[in-house]
Simulated scan of single mutants.
Amino acid sequence: MESLPQEIVQNILSRLPIPSLVQSKLVCRAWRSLIRSLIHDPSFILQSNHPIQSQLYLGDFSSQNHGNYNMVTMKLPRPPLSRFTLASSCNGLLCLLDYHRSFEPCIYNPFTANFMELPHLTRHHNFQVLGFGFHPITKEYKLVEISYTIYTCGGGSFHRVDPSPFKSDVHILTLGSSTWRHLGTVPYHVHSQKKSQARINGKLLHWVSWMKNRRNTIIISFDMETEKFQEIPLPDCCSSSNNPTEGFDQVVVIRGCLSAVRYGNDSEELEIWVMKEYGVKESWSKEFRIGAYVPKILLEQDESEFLIYSRSYLHRKQTRVMCMLRSGEMLLEYRNKALVVYDPHCKTFKHVQLTFEGIPTFFIIDVHVANLNWIDTLVDMAEN
């Protein structure tokens, strides 16, 4: 291979599946740099509970035939857990929640089979959101938990807690440490795990949140180095509104920039705003508009709900923006049951055909960069 021109080597490597590329990074530094430079669509980690409970797959867009997308999935080795939930992915490592240990987090690399149970954290709340990141300067992986109570049980029934205090407990764990540290409380209630987390430059985690005395949502960031929270300045359309339906609903990374998803109150369209210069309010720009769409599989499975609610309502409640593909199209996930590619230029939707062992009725998906990293072994610093 050393005698081959770099263009030929690059052509060969570009045709390899993700698992082979991961192994090829170990050949030499030149190959590692070359593989890093290859432009690929992101790969994905999927968890399905049918036909096998808590089975992990690596998903990769293998081909595009006649305008159709296919995502081929490869079954991955299982961690030593009988039942778990995929919470997050960072730099090749997965954060899993152990169902049989009260959803305690664990760390797992499915390509090396490295697995770590984390120290127990005594919780006093019934709702938690986890952030998982790697700081490229301190070389530390950290897990941050934001938790608060939304329901209490009394007299055999559940009661919603008055949200007026809007306080959440924050704990952080540096992987390799034996204990969690309590960072105090913050005046935020963070949205659900999967629809409101974005990581910029590894060390900055972002969530959509509610705050006391604010009717609409805000975006908060957490710095893995300073371990401090900060509010992100919003565009005028969201920062000045008192209508809770006009705030942002999701955060996502588009072209390396912090981006946010908003549903216009007077429109069926989903809007994607991009912060082109991080931290600068004036750099927010509405870059994409996605019309209402409901995948066929949901119409078949949820026919009764579709008859009750409008297409616009279902679109707002079930759409999650995953990422932008190298083609400039958007990958959308619908209610953990369907993947769709949206072309912003032609304004068309294409169903993604998933190749599984069996036909799952529900899956959890996260963007993933597969590699051979472990907590104390940094083979590749590529960030997802």
Rank of each mutant, 00 (worst) to 15 (best):
S157E: 10
K195G: 03
Q128D: 15
K75N: 08
M324A: 07
N265K: 15
I150F: 10
K194T: 11
R335A: 10
S3W: 03
P77G: 01
I18A: 09
P51K: 07
I172D: 00
Q230E: 14
R262H: 04
G184S: 08
F115Q: 05
G156S: 09
N91C: 14
M71C: 06
N49L: 12
V144I: 13
Q193G: 04
R83E: 13
V280D: 02
C237Y: 07
D223Q: 01
C90M: 13
L234A: 03
K194Y: 09
L13A: 15
M324E: 12
E231L: 06
F288A: 00
N242C: 14
H182K: 03
S196L: 02
Y188P: 05
E227S: 08
A30Y: 12
L175N: 01
F222Y: 08
R311I: 15
E7T: 14
I52D: 01
S157V: 05
V72R: 06
R255L: 08
M224N: 06
N213P: 08
D376W: 10
S178F: 11
V186K: 01
N49W: 13
L331T: 02
V294S: 03
Q128R: 06
G156I: 11
C323L: 14
L56A: 06
W31D: 01
Q230H: 09
I308G: 04
S312P: 01
T138V: 15
E329C: 13
M116L: 11
P163H: 02
M330E: 05
T185V: 10
